[in-house]
Design a protein around this nucleic acid. Structure first.
Length: 707
RNA sequence: GGAUCCUUAGCUCAGUUGGUUAGAGCGUUACAUUGACAUUGUAAAGGCCAGUGGUUCGAGUCCACUAGGGUCCACCA
C-alpha cells in the first residue's frame, strides 16, 4: 500500500467496477425485502449544488440496507425544471440579442430541447463522483413519453372527478417571464416604498383624499371605499367621485373592510389589479377591465398613459396629479411586494383564465396520512409546517405560460366552449357538439404538478413489476425547503392517484450554507461547487463532513477545517490498513472471522474485550442509522476508529502480535470498514480489497456476517 | 401580524427519554515521535450552556417570559 491515500486514483475506478458488476441493482439481493428511495430529480441541464450533495443521506440508507440483505433500489432521475430551464435559456437568448418572442412555440420548444440535451449527462456524472449507488438502468426523465402519459391520466382523472376546474381569476403574473405562478412561488419582498395621498374631486363638491401605494392604477378604479362607521366619511357614501385624468365617475361605497386608522381611512378599489379589491368589487358588483396588459404596459385608459410600462406610468401620473394640484403628500411606507422567485421583478396581479386543482379533499387525506402515522416525518418538528400548509391550503393554479414543459392536454371547442380533456392524444371532435373546431390550450403544467407524481410515475415505468414490488417507497429524503412545494404535494397527489401513500418516511436534511453561515446564492456570488471539494478532499471526506456534527434537518455552514479533518481521517483509516498489511504473518492460514465467530475465536483477554466493544459499536451504529441519526453514527465511528481502535488497540497489539491476535485485529478492522462503508464508500472498498481473505466487494458484503 | 428553529469553548457544531467532574473537530500551549500516519501521539489551557423566573431530589435538556439571530407563512391599501 502507498504511504498516503490518494482518492484521485481510486474513486473513479471503483465506481466503474461497481456499476459494471451491477451492484447498484436491487436484483443483487433477489430474495431481500424491498427497500426503495426515489432520488429527488436534479435539474437535467444544471450542475449539482450542495443541496444535491446532501443526498448522501440517501446513499447511506441504501448502502446500509443493501448490506443488510434488502433489495435496495435507488432510482435516479432528471427534471426538466420548466420555469427554471426556460429562464436560463431565455437569458442565453438575450445574450444573443434575441427573445422568446422571436420564435413560435414549436421552434422555441425544440431549441430548449436541444439545449437541454446538449447539457445532459453532466449532473449524472457528478452524482457518480459522489459515490451514489443509484440504479442507472432505471434512470427516468420527467419528459419521458411514458411519464408524460401518466401525468396526463392523473389530470384526466382529476378532471373527471371534478377536482380540476378552469377559472378566470387574478393570478400572480410575471410580465418579464411571461407566465403566472402559484401562491407558493411568490416571493414577498419587504421594501421601503411611498404611500401617496391623492385628492379625488367629489362631484357634489369638495374632495376626498385616499392613500395608495399604486397611484398608476387609479385609472382602473371602480370605487372609493370608506368604513361606514367612520364619522368623517359616512355622509359621503353614495356620492360620486370624478377620477382624475380619466374623468370617469365612480361611487363612494361603504365596507367595514376598510381600516379607519390606516392612511386617510379612504381607499380606492382596483378590481383588476389587486387581490383584495377583486373580492370587494365582486361583493359590490363592480367591475372594470384591466388597465395593465400581460406585457406589463398600460392599456384601456384612452390617455397618454397607454403603452407606458407600469413604472413609467407611475412617474407620469405623479406629474399629472401634481399639475392639477391633486397630490396632497407622500409618506415613506414599509411595504411587502410580491416578486418573481426567478427574475426578482415585481409580480402583477392580472386576471387570467387558468386551470386549478381543488385542494381541500386532497389535503384532507394528506393530513390524515401523517396524523395516523402511516407517513412519518423526520425530524418530527416539520410535521407542524406540513400541517400548517395543508390546513390552510388554497387551490393550486397549475397553468404556466411556459413553452418548456408538459403541455396541458385540454382542447377548447370554438363552437360550444366545451373543454375536452384527453390522456391519449388529441380528440377528433367535441364530445358535446361534435364540432371539429378544437384548439389545444397553449399552456404547460406547473413543473411541480408532474413532480408530485414522481414516486409512482417512475416505478410504473422503470422495470416490469417495480411498482408492485417497491411502491410505496420506503423513504423520501430531501431538503426541508421543499417540504410544501414538493413533499406535501407528492403525498396528496400520490394518495389520490394510487390510493396508497407514496412513501412511508419523509426524511428532511438541512441546508448547506457558505462558511460564514450565509445562504449560498448566485447573486451573492458565494456559491461553492461541491465537485471542487470532491477533487480536493475526496468524495468520502466530503460525504463524511456533511454528515458529521450536524443534526438531521439543521443547517450547516460549510467548514473547510472539517473537510480537512475528514480528509485526514481517510488517511488515518488508510494507514491503519497499511499497518495491518505490513504486519501480516507469513503464510497466514487462519481466515478473517465475523462477529459471532470472533467471540469464540478471541482467546486473549484484551482481544475478547475488543470484540465486545465492536459488538456494541455495531449495535449503536445500526440503531442510529435506522433512527435517521446519522451524525451520531458518524461520530461514534470516527471516535472508535481513531481514538479507540488505532490509538489504543493497535498500539497494544503492536507489541504482542501473533497469528491469532492478528486475525482478531483484521476482523475487527474489517467490521469497522463495513460500518463505515455507507458513509465512506470508496476508501472502505479500496482497503477491503487489500485485506486477507476479503470478499468480492464490501458493497455487497453482509452488514454483520462475512460475505 | 402568525408559525418555527436557533443562541453551548476563540471558530464550526454535537449533546438522543432531565441523572455523577458539559463533548468533538479546528485553533491555542507544552512535550514527544519519523513511527503504519504529506504526520501522529501524550498532556494542558479554554464554557455563570443568551437572560430572568418556574417545575423537580436534580435542568444545557421541561415550562413561561425577555433579548438577539435565522427561516417560512400572511391580501392591510
Amino acid at each position: 500500500m502507498d504511504k498516503a491515500y490518494d482518492h484521485a486514483i481510486v474513486e473513479d475506478r471503483i465506481y466503474k467496477t461497481w456499476e459494471e458488476k451491477g451492484y447498484f441493482k436491487p436484483e443483487i439481493n433477489p430474495d431481500g425485502a424491498p427497500y426503495s428511495i426515489i432520488l429527488p430529480p436534479p435539474n437535467a441541464n444544471a450542475p449539482l449544488h450542495f443541496g444535491h450533495a446532501m443526498y448522501v443521506v440517501e446513499d447511506i440508507l441504501i448502502r446500509f440496507n443493501r448490506m443488510k440483505g434488502l433489495a435496495a433500489l435507488w432510482v435516479p432521475g432528471a427534471d426538466h425544471a420548466g420555469t427554471e430551464t426556460q429562464f436560463v435559456f431565455e437569458k442565453k437568448l438575450k445574450e444573443q440579442g434575441k427573445s422568446r418572442l422571436d420564435y413560435d412555440r414549436d421552434t422555441l420548444y425544440q431549441m430548449i430541447w436541444d439545449y437541454v440535451h446538449e447539457n445532459r449527462g453532466g449532473m449524472e456524472n457528478q452524482l457518480r463522483r459522489l459515490g451514489f449507488s443509484l440504479d442507472w438502468s432505471r434512470m427516468k426523465f420527467t419528459l419521458d413519453p411514458d411519464i408524460v402519459k401518466i401525468v396526463y391520466s392523473t389530470f384526466k382523472k382529476m378532471f373527471d372527478d371534478g377536482l380540476v376546474y378552469r377559472a378566470n381569476r387574478l393570478v400572480n403574473y410575471c410580465t418579464f417571464d411571461g407566465t403566472s405562478f402559484s401562491d407558493l412561488e411568490v416571493v414577498n419582498m419587504e421594501k421601503e416604498g411611498l404611500l401617496y395621498f391623492i385628492k379625488f374631486p367629489i362631484k357634489e363638491g369638495g374632495f376626498i383624499t385616499i392613500a395608495t401605494t399604486r397611484p398608476e392604477t387609479l385609472v382602473g378604479d371602480v370605487a372609493v371605499m370608506v368604513n361606514p362607521e367612520d364619522a368623517r366619511y359616512k355622509d359621503l357614501i353614495g356620492k360620486t367621485v370624478i377620477l382624475p385624468i380619466v374623468e370617469r365617475e365612480i361611487p363612494i361605497i361603504g365596507d367595514d373592510y376598510v381600516k379607519m386608522e390606516f392612511g386617510t381611512g379612504a381607499v380606492k378599489v382596483t378590481p383588476a389589479h389587486d387581490f383584495n379589491d377583486y373580492e370587494i368589487a365582486k361583493k359590490h358588483n363592480l367591475s372594470y377591465p384591466p388597465i395593465i396588459g400581460f406585457d406589463g404596459r398600460m392599456k384601456n385608459t384612452n390617455t397618454e398613459l397607454d403603452g407606458l410600462y407600469v413604472k413609467q406610468a407611475r412617474v407620469k401620473i405623479f406629474e399629472l396629479l401634481k399639475e392639477k394640484d391633486l397630490l396632497e403628500k407622500e409618506e415613506k411606507h414599509h411595504m411587502v411586494i410580491p416578486t418573481c422567485y426567478k427574475c426578482k421583478n415585481v409580480l402583477e396581479p392580472l386576471p387570467k383564465e387558468q386551470w386549478y386543482i381543488k385542494m381541500e379533499p386532497l389535503a384532507a387525506k394528506g393530513i390524515e396520512a401523517v396524523k395516523n402515522g402511516k407517513i412519518k416525518i423526520h425530524p418530527d418538528t416539520f410535521e407542524k409546517v406540513y400541517m400548517q400548509f395543508l390546513e390552510n391550503i388554497r387551490d393550486w393554479n397549475i397553468s404556466r405560460q411556459n413553452v418548456w414543459g408538459i403541455r396541458i392536454p385540454a382542447w377548447f371547442c370554438e363552437k360550444c366552449s366545451n373543454w375536452e380533456i384527453k390522456d391519449d392524444g388529441a380528440p377528433e371532435k367535441c364530445s358535446k357538439c361534435g364540432s371539429k373546431d378544437l384548439v389545444q390550450d397553449i399552456d404547460t403544467f406547473d413543473t411541480w404538478f408532474s413532480s408530485s407524481q414522481w414516486p409512482f410515475a417512475t416505478l410504473m415505468t422503470t422495470h416490469a413489476r417495480d411498482y408492485e414490488k417497491f411502491y410505496p417507497t420506503t423513504v423520501m429524503e430531501t431538503g426541508y425547503d421543499i417540504l410544501r412545494w414538493w413533499v406535501a404535494r407528492m403525498i396528496m397527489v400520490g394518495l389520490y392517484a394510487t390510493d396508497k401513500i407514496p412513501f412511508e418516511n419523509v426524511v428532511l436534511h438541512g441546508l448547506v450554507n457558505d462558511p460564514l453561515g450565509k445562504k449560498m446564492s448566485k447573486s451573492k456570488g458565494n456559491v461553492v461547487n461541491p465537485m471542487e471539494l470532491v477533487d480536493q478532499y475526496g468524495a468520502d471526506a466530503v460525504r463524511f463532513a456533511l454528515i458529521y456534527g450536524t443534526a438531521l434537518g439543521h443547517d450547516q455552514a460549510l467548514s473547510y477545517p472539517k473537510l480537512e479533518a475528514m480528509r485526514k481521517f481517510s488517511n488515518k483509516l488508510w494507514n491503519m490498513g497499511r499497518f495491518i498489511e505490513m504486519n501480516k504473518p507469513e503464510n497466514l492460514k487462519l481466515k478473517t472471522q465475523n462477529l459471532e465467530e470472533l467471540k469464540e475465536f478471541a482467546t486473549n483477554k484484551t482481544d475478547k474485550e475488543w470484540v465486545e466493544k465492536v459488538a456494541s459499536l455495531i449495535k449503536e451504529v445500526t440503531e442510529n442509522i435506522e433512527n435517521y441519526q446519522f451524525h451520531f453514527a458518524a461520530e461514534s465511528l470516527y471516535e472508535f476508529s481513531w481514538h479507540q481502535f488505532a490509538d489504543i488497540y493497535i498500539e497494544d497489539v503492536k507489541n504482542r502480535v501473533d497469528e491469532n491476535s492478528y486475525v482478531v485485529l483484521v476482523s475487527i478492522y474489517s467490521i469497522l470498514l463495513k460500518l463505515l462503508h455507507p458513509f465512506m464508500p470508496f476508501i472502505t472498498e479500496e482497503i477491503y480489497q487489500k485485506l486477507p481473505h476479503h470478499g468480492e466487494s464490501i458493497m455487497i458484503a453482509s452488514w454483520l456476517n462475512n460475505g
